[in-house]
Design a protein around this nucleic acid. Structure first.
Lengths: 342, 342
DNA sequence: TCGTTGTCATCAATCGATTGCAATATACCC
DNA sequence: GGGTATATTGCAATCGATTGATGACAACGA
């Protein structure tokens, strides 16, 4: 293993002071002879000199590093968000410290502290969806010495920049679309018990029904965690109803549902129509392709970064900014249009 | 935004020197009165004091942070690897800096430098699969001032710890299994042009054929990138052959193939048998479930960490260690047993 | 009273960079 | 040769922690 080369060593070899070397290598406006400049650069290159960011950020009080906390990097959506965000950060010369918490508020807190003490200049937080005790986390976030942007979801009632898709609107759009296609008995499969986003999507679903005077029937509302297996379990009951369509409030939930449908020999949309959520790559495989509410992680990343960027630059008011993005309905082939006589 | 509290400020408030505070808060053996100890701890807690790791790691010459470079965090396999690795690192008090390169050697190099200058104590590298020019990267890795462990793949001919599954063996096992089930015309769909792992899997496939005296028929070997779309494109040609089985050398490749099969109304394993690779979660959905070569990312992470851990502790010889893991064949329902009269 | 021992706490150097200010060397002018 | 620009470069403090070396003070025995 090679040794780390320091500024001082370069200086020694060149025969100049460390300050001069620093000045030259950072292209600071200063009066160092062209000759020495060249010499310094050459020696630095020859020795593979790379400045120690640790030392540098100690004095500069900035690390050009940002942090991200997601509940679970193994989920497609978060992985994609992380990927986009990292790319975006790198474009502006920031490194992104990606961490994955496991979803409990305690883990989130621990990671947040880690990031802060490691000197990130700002954090993106995808936290606050699960209903564990988040008092300590809330406290920590509100006293953060660096800017924070909550992405995709939020800790309720916390004054903090937020960037997220309108989950209520998503639920509403999916349901309105089904209604528009003639469906009247529409079931939904949501994670309302343990998830804020799920709760909002459910609210949107109900608003759509209410708006056209359809009854809100508790027997058509089913609960599922955000796992394929959970949705698979829950789906049997869904299929026992007289629903002609189902709103599946996440891609995993849709996948679990599809698996069950497939096993029962039901066809889509012939036997039952489905609107999914997230429109992630896995869907690509299904016949028929799934009509879904899409929320592009890239767009989320873009806005989140813009928000962060503003804070880092010291711009942006003292009040928190809130960006709400509209999801899109992507129509494919999993919904049957019911004609009157049906 | 709250301010960062420093050691000095705590010291000032307590009325003791910074050294004393440091000593106490780190539970160093030292003679500070019980009374003052309590006082220090209390004041530190009240002020939400958190030590600045940046400053600390400057003097301690270690950050308890490790780095990971994967080609693409959006891929299921890498996301899963990253997740497992992070969890494992955290168990030992290390934070993991996850980065995603995009797959080119230049990006890898850039990220590696970033990690090193940011003071990670070691790096996990998932690099070297693509055939871009990697001279600079190779050079950098061999002069690294910190331990590196190559995971899942490697830059050929580089003296460096390696932990990976035996890709050749995977290809061999898949093919032997198909042969064992009576198949004689076995096609394969691999990424041999741009991927070392793909090349190895192909080698395993050929070894299996050779071993039983079956001909290696170039007309049965098809090329596909590791994308669903690429495999989808390539699959038409595969299906035009007289093959009774296909070895798909990655999950994405299998998915593309399946999509095409589905569209052509072919059934699995009735019309054609398939052995997939990676056995990732997406497979769960298919009817029939896919027989596949499985390489558990968690196992990979475990061994990679163990390897790193040894280096960090200063144990481990001067020669590079090489851990080769055997993949497992998971038999499900996508392969038809051909009886003699077929 | 001096020396010894023990307890409690502080000093000051260090890690590797950055940077305002001071210092030196050279050139130029009268 | 003295004085003033101007061109170059170096000093030393700083960021926030850690830590080996040291100091101050009290109590105690001889």
């Amino acid at each position: 293993m090679a040794n780390k080369v320091t500024l001082k060593q370069i200086a020694q070899e060149v025969g100049l002071s460390p300050s001069s070397v620093s000045l030259v290598l950072n292209n600071r406006p200063c009066r160092i002879s062209e000759e020495n400049r060249k010499l310094i650069k050459e020696v630095a290159a020859r020795n593979h000199y790379v400045p120690n960011q640790i030392a540098r950020s100690l004095v500069m009080r900035e690390s050009r590093t940002l942090g991200l906390i997601v509940p679970n990097i193994e989920s497609r959506f978060f992985a994609s968000l992380a990927g986009s965000l990292e790319k975006r950060c790198r474009e502006d010369g920031y490194a992104l410290f990606i961490t994955s918490s496991g979803g409990s508020a305690d883990d989130d807190l621990e990671l947040l502290r880690q990031l802060v003490t490691r000197g990130v200049d700002g954090v993106f937080l995808v936290v606050g969806d699960e209903f564990s005790d988040d008092r300590a986390l809330r406290e920590e976030v509100s006293h953060l010495p660096i800017p924070a942007v909550m992405v995709d979801r939020a800790i309720e009632g916390l004054e903090c920049d937020k960037v997220m898709f309108d989950h209520e609107m998503g639920g509403y759009m999916a349901t309105r679309y089904l209604i528009g296609q003639g469906h009247r008995r529409i079931a939904c499969l949501v994670n309302a018990r343990r998830s804020n986003t799920g709760r909002k999507r459910l609210a949107g679903y109900e608003r759509a029904l209410r708006e056209v005077g359809l009854p809100i029937d508790a027997r058509l509302e089913f609960e599922s965690e955000y796992y394929i297996s959970s949705a698979y379990e829950a789906s049997e009951a869904v299929l026992a109803t007289d629903a002609t369509a189902v709103f599946a409030s996440s891609d995993n939930i849709a996948l679990g549902l599809l698996k069950r449908l497939h096993e029962m020999g039901k066809s889509i949309p012939g036997d039952i129509s489905v609107v999914s959520y997230d429109n992630s790559a896995a869907d690509v495989l299904f016949e028929p392709a799934l009509t879904a509410i899409e929320q592009d992680p890239g767009v989320l990343a873009e806005h989140a970064f813009a928000c962060m960027s503003k804070r880092l630059a010291g711009r942006g008011g003292r009040r928190a900014e809130e960006v709400v993005l509209e999801p899109a309905l992507i129509v494919k082939d999993s919904v049957l249009e019911l004609t009157k006589h049906n």
